[in-house]
Design a protein around this nucleic acid. Structure first.
Lengths: 330, 330
DNA sequence: GTGAAAGCGCTAACAG
DNA sequence: CTGTTAGCGCTTTCAC
């Protein structure tokens, strides 16, 4: 009788069993290779455990993220993985790349908590999450997070990058930043400033923007609009997309990486090794971060109680050809 | 009363309403930027229509794909979008990149239907799909597909690429192929041979592999292991990943693109413009293909009946810097 | 209008 | 061990 197309109805089953064998995942953008790798990691361990994954793109818009979180809760997912977007205190609609447009010039100030009207906490959803629903933050750790999380060590990561650069003899360093509304954006910038400070060096350029190719290109263009004498001999970018954008701008300026400027990125996305020159970068194992996150969810589902666990993955430096010894005397 | 955390239970709702407002999508690999873009497209229109999307990676393994399709049906998705994997007639486990290993040398034969023991039809699931479940094939059109689909015009696409190359004076052309078990792999190769045939030119090199960077690198390496006199002056690769791999191999050989060989890719993934030199390629609008696919699903859900609709999107050539005029006399 | 009842397709508990 | 029944949280119908 099953011969003619009977399929058990898993939704009826879920209703009585009180679980759906489904994980919800909300990320900024699937089309971004870093998040694609993250998803890959969670899907793999979800599949092992007989779960499927629902996903949604937030475009880094906190309201959109909230909507998806709410919807996934109503759909009774067994666990939630989220790359937390920044939240705005007022309900003003967040436009993509909002904070991106104007690089903040020479060296822009950075303060914690409230950044240019953007709330860096995870806000609302935290409050009324169903009890017992495992939630884990991926990649970005909001100021007020009280659940499990897996994040990279951003400060240590950029410290690796600047260490490499000063070993190469560079003393005039610049930083092309990401979105200061995001924890990763703030931490990487703070890590840059701290790493330089530890060595008694003052940065020559620091700007913020968005984590995108276009923002990297724009920030670098505005850097190179300043007098050549003030240019850095080496640039660290807050992620690979940004670095790739810097590469474009350098090329457009008729300059060369690494002859005129050294460049280091962050993430080691798959395409970092395909640029010209191949990008020296700080590797974050996105896929492994994703599977670690899913494993945290299942640990809770398996009954583990206890304080929030935040696993921080150690980044490492992969040096390729976008960095070279500094030729100008300090 | 809702004040203390009441959430409507959408799964109970689904049980009675007989729909889940969920789309299922199975793709080879989220981490592949082409498929990431596709997903982006379907998510966007799904969201507009109040649907969420469940996804699964098949790794191009037909069995894995079947398992996800089956699971999504049991979960009572309202529609299914799939980038159909190749199927093996026997239940032999398909290993990733199985067909990839050895490039088939000078010019490997290609026949339809059964390719090296791989069934190019969509097989089983077709048979016992629930009546009324909208299913659409994305990117790849199996031989026996009888549902809606959205695909690129692969033959026209590579014809664009070879047209550009012969205009540039090239007469000695080679083809670095993808997986012949996939419709895209076969069509792009056939398109290459046809486009050359139309012009009375015989290809100088044709090989198959997998749609990956490594396969491109390996195929190109074996091409360049042949006597230099037999080398092509221009290469068309079956996709951008392959082309990027060729680029690596060319570089490793101490040769230059486009001075020694011109190179054209296929897809125009986001990173195609970041290679060195930026890749000339045949653009397929992945995101738009995804949203078109989702729109087909909703059209059926809205009650449209009628024969399967296959929308084929026209590719266009984007010329960047990996192609140049042929300097050697024909 | 407001309230009770049936039932979506399962699982679990309980009888025979 | 097989068969019946209650109930998961909703929507819909039907009665009041």
């Amino acid at each position: 009788m099953a011969a003619l197309g009977y399929r058990p109805n898993r939704i009826a089953r879920s209703l009585i069993l009180q679980h759906t064998r489904t994980l919800g995942m909300v990320i900024p953008d699937v089309a971004n290779p870093f998040f694609g790798d993250l998803m890959r990691g969670v899907e793999e361990v979800a599949r092992e455990r007989g779960h499927s994954v629902l996903f949604g793109n937030s475009d880094n818009d906190g309201d959109q993220e909230d909507r998806y979180v709410e919807e996934f809760i109503e759909r009774r997912v067994d666990g939630l993985l989220v790359v937390v977007a920044a939240h705005r205190p007022a309900r003003s609609p967040a436009r993509a790349g909002d904070a991106a447009e104007v690089p903040s010039g020479a060296i822009a100030p950075l303060d914690g908590g409230l950044v240019r009207g953007v709330d860096t906490r995870a806000l609302g959803r935290l409050a009324d999450l169903p009890a017992g629903l495992p939630v884990v933050a991926l990649d970005r750790l909001p100021d007020d997070w009280s659940h499990d999380a897996v994040v990279g060590d951003n400060r240590a990561g950029v410290a690796l990058g600047v260490g490499h650069l000063v070993e190469l003899g560079h003393r005039r360093l610049g930083f092309i930043g990401g979105d200061p509304a995001l924890a990763t954006g703030r931490e990487r910038r703070a890590g840059f400033e701290a790493a330089l400070g530890d060595r008694g060096i003052r940065p020559v350029w620091v700007s913020d923007g968005a984590f995108s190719l276009d923002s990297g290109r724009a920030q670098a263009a505005s850097l190179f609009a300043s007098p050549p004498a003030t240019w850095p001999t080496a640039i660290v970018a807050a992620n690979d997309l940004l670095a790739l954008g810097v590469l474009l701008a350098v090329r457009e300026r008729g300059l060369s990486v690494p002859d005129d400027v050294s460049l280091v990125g962050f993430d080691d996305i798959t395409y970092a090794c395909l640029s010209n020159p191949p990008l020296t970068t700080v590797r974050q194992p996105a896929r492994e971060m994703g599977s670690a996150g899913a494993r945290l969810v299942f640990r809770r589902l398996d009954g583990e109680v206890g304080p929030p666990e935040v696993v921080v993955v150690r980044p490492d430096l992969v040096v390729r050809s976008s960095t070279a010894r500094c030729e100008v005397p300090a």
